[in-house]
Nucleic acid binder design. Structure first.
Lengths: 342, 342
DNA sequence: TTTCCGGGTTCCACGGAAACG
DNA sequence: CCGTTTCCGTGGAACCCGGAA
C-alpha cells in the first residue's frame, strides 16, 4: 500500500482544493464554489479565469465534501446480476437517461450472488446514495434488513412483488401463460420448460408454476421441465434439450427462460438435424438482439426494459415522504413477439 | 422526525450517524469508528454491542466523510462503452476480483461516447477515486488533460499505446495478421474485412491497416472492407455481407471485427443458402460465448480479457510514486481459436 | 464574506488491569 | 506485599473540503 505520505502526496493524486484554486485565481473560495455550482451567479470573466485555473490544476470539486456539507448525494446505485445480455443494457440505459434528466448519476455494481449484492448495498449505503436499484426480489436476509432499517429508498426491478420497498416489473406469469397458449394453439402437445438452477432458480419458480398450471388447464401433461446450471449460457440449451428428449422423444415444444437458452436449443437442433419449428417449436425470453437475427428467428417475450429502468428512477426520486407508505408496484407490461421458431 | 436535518429533501433517509450509534451503545464515537475500521482494536464484547446497535439503526459508516478525513478512497472507477457483449463481462469480473483482493471496490459507469465518458471521469474524480480505468485510447481532449493535470492514476485498456498514463492490452495488429495468414493458408483469395463506423471506428483503424498490409504481403488484393453502423449488432453482419457480395461476388473469406458481426454474417449466409465454410470462411473477434456454440462454430481471437482487468487494477494500485514515470504498457496476449467456420 | 458545521479519521493521551520486580 | 512498568481498550482534539446562512 505504499504508505505514501500521511496526507495526499500519493494515491488520489489530486492535491487541488477549492482554496488553492481560489488563491491562484485571485478570488475567494466562495466564488470558486459558485463557478461550479451556480455558474450564472459569477461574472463571465471571473468564471473563465476560475475555470482556466481549475483546468490547469486538474481541479474537480470534491463530491465527498460537497455531499457532506449539503447532505444530499446525487448518486443512484444500481446492482445488476450480470451484464451478459442485451436486455440489461437497455435497462441500464433507461436508468441512466432518466437519472441524468434529474441531475443524478448512476453507479453500477456487478453482483453474481446474494453475498456480493449485500457488499454492494453496503458500499452504496456508505456513499449515502440517493437510492438503490436491485434486480429481483431474492436477496440476502441482511440486505433487506439493512435497507429497511436505514430507510434507504429502494426499488426492486423485474418483479411485481417487492420484498423491501418499491418495485417495478411485469407479469411473468401472464407472459408464461400466453406462451403456453400460443404453443398449444399451434398444435403442440408435448411441451417442456427450461430454466436455470442455482442461485437464480427462484426467479423462475413463478414461471414454472404458471407453465404447469396453464398446461394443466389445457388438459396436457406438465412434467417436462429441466433446470440447467446457471453458469452455462448457450450451452445450457444443448444440455437441456438432450435431457428432455431422453425423457420425451416426442417433445414438440419448448419454452426457455432466456433467449440465450433458446439460442442454445436451436444450435443443438441444427447439429442434431431437428427441424425448428417443424419438429420442435422453441420460444425464448427477453427479446435480446439475437432473437430477431438467429435462423429461425425466435418467438419471445419482450419486456419493456427501458421503461422499467426509467420507472425505477422515477419511483426512487419521486420524493416520497420518508416513513410514508411505498407507492404501489408498477407494471410496465410486456409483449409477445411471434417469429419463425413457432 | 423524518426531516430531522435543516434540509430534509427526503434524500438518503438515513439519519444514523456515528454519534447516535455511539450514544445508543454507550461508547464514544471513536469506539464506533474503530469497530468498523479496525475491529481487532476493540474488545469483542464492545464490538458486538456496537454492531448490534448499528444493525438496528441501519447504520453504515459514511464513506464520503471517511474519504474526506483520510484523504484516500478505496474506489476504482471503470468506464466502459457498452455492456452488450460477454467479453466486457469477463473484463469487469477481472477488475472487480482483483480490486476486491486489495480491499477496493469497482464502480462502473456506462458511456457510449466521448462526451459521456468525460462526464463519468468528472464524477469519479469528484469522488477522488483511487484510480480510473478506461477502454481504448480515443477520448475527449479534455478527458486526457483533466486526468493528467490532476495526476489521477489512469489505465487505458484494450490498447497497447496509451495516451494518458498507463495501459494494458494486446496486439490487435498481430492478431489480425494471424487471421489473414490463417485464411490464406486455407486457400482463400478474396478476403473482406467488416468493422464498425461511427464513434468506435478508430478502434478498428489499426486492424484495417494490418489487414491490408498482410493481404498485400500475400500478393492479394486488399480493397474489400465495409464499415457497418455501430448501433447494429448482428444486423451489421447481414448488411455488410450484402454490400461485400455486391462488390465481390466471388468473396470467399471475411474477417469480422466482433463475434457478433460474424454471427450476423453466418445467420445471413443461412438465409441466403451460402455454405460456411464451404463457400465462405468467416472469422470473429472476442471469443464471446456464441462463438463456440453457433453452427458452424466460429474461428476467433480470444483476448485475455480477465487478465486484462486484473492487470489494470494491478497497475493502478501498484503505488507508483506520484510524478514518477508510468510503467511500460502491458501486453496480456491473445490466442487464435480455430473452429468450424474456417 | 465570514463562520460554522457535517461525519468521520488520524494521532495521541488517558487510565485501568495485569505482569513484573 | 506493594510499587512500578507495560499493555491495551477507549476517548479527545484537530482537521479534511465545501455549502449555507
Amino acid at each position: 500500500m505504499s504508505g505514501a505520505g500521511r496526507n495526499g502526496a500519493g494515491g488520489g493524486g489530486s492535491r487541488a482544493t477549492m482554496q488553492r484554486v481560489a488563491a491562484a485565481a485571485g478570488v475567494s473560495p466562495m466564488t470558486v464554489s459558485n463557478t461550479f455550482r451556480y455558474p450564472e451567479r459569477v461574472q463571465e470573466e471571473t468564471r473563465a479565469r476560475v475555470l482556466a485555473v481549475a483546468a490547469e490544476l486538474g481541479y474537480v470539486p470534491n463530491l465527498a465534501a460537497g455531499h457532506l456539507a449539503s447532505g444530499s448525494s446525487r448518486v443512484v446505485g444500481a446492482i445488476i446480476p450480470s451484464i451478459r445480455n442485451s436486455s440489461f443494457y437497455r435497462y441500464v440505459r433507461g436508468l441512466q437517461d432518466a437519472a441524468a434528466e434529474q441531475g443524478h448519476e448512476v453507479m453500477i455494481s456487478l453482483a453474481d450472488d446474494a453475498e456480493q449484492e449485500l457488499a454492494a448495498v453496503r458500499t452504496f449505503m456508505g456513499w449515502r446514495a440517493a437510492g438503490i436499484v436491485l434486480v429481483g426480489s431474492e436477496h440476502h436476509a441482511e440486505t433487506a434488513a439493512l435497507l429497511r432499517a436505514a430507510r434507504m429508498p429502494t426499488v426492486e426491478t423485474w418483479v411485481r412483488r417487492g420484498a423491501i420497498d418499491m418495485c417495478v416489473g411485469f407479469s411473468v406469469e401472464e407472459a408464461t401463460r400466453q406462451m403456453v397458449r400460443h404453443l398449444v394453439a399451434r398444435g403442440r402437445r408435448q411441451i417442456g420448460f427450461i430454466g436455470y438452477s442455482g442461485g437464480v432458480a427462484r426467479r423462475f419458480a413463478d414461471r414454472l408454476a404458471a407453465f404447469r398450471d396453464e398446461l394443466g388447464a389445457a388438459g396436457l401433461a406438465a412434467g417436462l421441465d429441466y433446470m440447467a446450471h446457471e453458469a452455462d449460457g448457450f450451452a445450457a440449451g444443448k444440455q437441456a434439450l438432450e435431457a428432455l428428449l431422453t425423457r420425451a422423444p416426442g417433445l414438440d415444444g419448448v419454452i426457455c427462460a432466456t433467449d440465450v437458452i433458446a439460442g442454445g436449443v436451436i444450435f443443438a437442433c441444427q447439429r442434431r438435424g431437428i427441424d425448428v419449428p417443424g419438429q420442435l417449436a422453441v420460444t425464448g425470453w427477453g427479446d435480446y438482439e439475437i432473437a430477431s437475427e438467429i435462423v429461425p428467428s425466435l418467438t419471445t417475450v419482450r419486456p419493456r426494459t427501458r421503461d422499467m429502468g426509467r420507472t425505477a428512477i422515477e419511483l426512487l426520486l419521486s420524493g416520497r415522504e420518508a416513513g410514508g407508505p411505498p407507492p404501489p408496484p408498477r407494471d410496465v407490461g410486456f409483449e409477445l413477439v411471434c417469429r419463425e421458431s413457432t
